[in-house]
Nucleic acid binder design. Structure first.
Length: 491
RNA sequence: GCGACGGUCGUCCAGUUUGGUCUAGGACAUCAGAUUGCCAAUCUGGUAACCCGGGUUCAAAUCCCGGCCGUCGCACCA
């Protein structure tokens, strides 16, 4: 049986994957969650897999930038202008509306988002617009900014928590490219936190105000988007493409040839990404790249595919894949008065690189992996199993003496101390052996080592497999190699 | 932010209608001990909760007000 949101939530709370922040206080705000011991372990392993399958595989460079950035950064990025929505608020019942949309809808007048507050106020007065809920008057237009503003130093200089990690990549681009001897196309990657003051955060890890992103910005020469030798590596990888209704399967090569994807560079990274997700344990047969229409796209994107996965609560966006053109470097170049062009060594011409990004939501990915890996095994008392890949499991192996007497406990502790520095192990000698197996299954431990009487005679233990419940005997001297082999099996 | 509904041990639920029997009960989980010795066994004992703040009352888990959180709907969603 497959999982739903509530079951994953329950498991997450009971087994220490994640839980609400500041929960012992009554004024804990919504939209903030923390990872517990099992969750942070799994998240670390997820990020390490991301490094392996994307950053190292493609020869990207990783940076770690600041979360607080100056106002100018967001003037250049467009977030100051595009993140402030005009809001109309009822003076009586406090209902709030997007001012531009509401006024347009009621009056038919063209009200752009950037229209001055006074002009919108004038329209409200002219048409005598009132709150549709209680018929009371509106207060004047105010502005809601989704960025968290912070004040730096005693003078409280205006700055913001970054709403997406990639802005640090853009502002650092010139130095990284120069000092690290970069060549286009060049991927620059970053893992870190971003902050958005969501109006209505919901559903635990799925809509947070403070959240983790793993972002990759590929800087490229826009005139060479189809000159990509490494495209050969992934040309046969199957991509599932969607316009929102039907899904078309095509190899990367076919997708480019048929124009489903605009160029080889975009197709290459979409293929890398799907190969990565396949290794996380997400069921990629339930995924799609959905091409966004113009009115769905972010303000900086010219072409956008959302990588979406089907979950118990519907299609969930895990990665935004945006072709941002030169929007960002142009903005930062103009605002900072720096020249951010680089030389393409192929023909020694100067070019302002374009950017294709893979903006991954880590928290949503963690949730999706948990949901796709969770199952109840009807054949065995509906045991709850988290079928995590060995290299993502918070506990790789449980070490369990069948009983503590006759020296089995000592032997088990010895085996445990031989393994615990190199593997995520869990030692447990309490209660029945069956109960201990079940507990391990719930945190996704793929293996359990059991020390029994035979161990005392021939120095072998049983290794039990989580999914099949089958056991095999392994020499204690070979356990280390056994576990290493299991970890290395990333398909 | 608005509206509807909700919030009791780690989890799920009883108790709230009609205030007192609640020093808050059960199941599962968890901890200690006994027993068993390869798949959530059994026995004994323990830990553990009324979301927060006010109010009404002799008396509040229960009624009232405010806040916070959650679910759903609306709106929003880079």
């Amino acid at each position: 049986m497959v999982a739903n949101y509530d079951e994953v939530m329950k498991l997450a709370l009971e087994r220490g994957f994640y839980f609400p922040s500041c929960e012992i206080y009554a004024d804990a705000p919504a939209g903030f969650w923390e990872y517990g011991p099992t969750g942070v372990n799994m998240k670390n392993k997820f990020v390490e897999l991301w490094r392996r399958e994307l950053v190292r595989r493609d020869g990207m460079m990783e940076i770690d930038g600041c979360q607080i950035m100056s106002k100018s950064v967001f003037v250049a990025s467009g977030h100051i202008g595009n993140f402030t929505d005009p809001i109309l608020r009822c003076t009586k019942c406090n209902s709030t509306f997007r001012a531009d949309r509401y006024v347009t809808e009621k009056t038919g007048e063209n009200v752009p988002e950037r229209m001055a507050d006074e002009e919108i106020n004038a329209l409200v007065k002219k048409y005598n617009l009132r709150c549709p809920n209680c018929k009371s008057e509106f207060g004047g237009v105010s502005r809601f900014n989704m960025m968290f503003r912070v004040g730096i130093g005693p003078a409280a200089e205006e700055a913001y928590l970054r709403p997406e990690t990639c802005q640090t990549i853009f502002v650092d681009f010139a130095r990284v490219f120069k000092t690290m001897r970069g060549r286009l196309p060049l991927g620059v990657a970053q893992v870190g936190k971003s902050f958005r003051n969501e109006i209505a955060p919901r559903q635990s890890l799925l809509r947070l105000r403070e959240f983790y992103q793993a972002e990759i910005e590929v800087f490229c020469n826009p005139s060479r988007l189809d000159e990509l030798p490494k495209f050969e590596e992934i040309k046969d990888t199957i991509l599932r493409l969607s316009d929102g209704s039907s899904i078309t399967e095509a190899t990367a090569e076919e997708a480019v040839r048929k124009g489903l994807i605009p160029n080889k560079l975009v197709a290459y990274y979409l293929a890398l990404l799907i190969e990565f997700y396949d290794k996380t344990g997400v069921d990629v047969r339930r995924s799609r790249y959905r091409r966004l229409s113009d009115d769905e796209k972010a303000f900086y994107a010219s072409i956008a595919f959302d990588f979406e996965v089907e979950t118990s609560i519907g299609w969930l966006e895990l990665v935004a894949c945006n072709y941002r053109s030169d929007y960002d470097l142009k903005g930062h170049g103009t605002t900072s008065k720096q020249n951010l062009e680089v030389v393409d060594p192929t023909d020694q011409t100067k070019v302002l690189p374009h950017v294709f990004e893979l903006s991954m939501g880590i928290d949503r990915s963690i949730y999706t992996i948990l949901e796709h890996c969770y199952y109840e095994d009807e054949k065995h008392d509906d045991r709850v199993v988290l079928g995590l890949k060995p290299y993502l499991a918070p506990v790789l192996v449980g070490i369990l003496p069948l009983m503590t007497k006759d020296g089995l406990g000592e032997k088990a502790r010895k085996i445990h101390s031989d393994l615990k520095l190199d593997f995520d192990t869990f030692y447990d000698e309490s209660g029945s052996i069956g109960r201990r197996y079940r507990r391990l299954e719930e945190v996704g431990a793929p293996f359990a080592i059991t020390i029994d009487q035979t161990t005392m005679q021939d120095d072998t233990v049983t290794v039990r497999h989580r999914d099949t419940m089958q056991q095999e005997r392994v020499k204690t001297s070979e356990l280390r190699q056994y576990m290493n082999n299991a970890l290395a099996a990333r398909n």
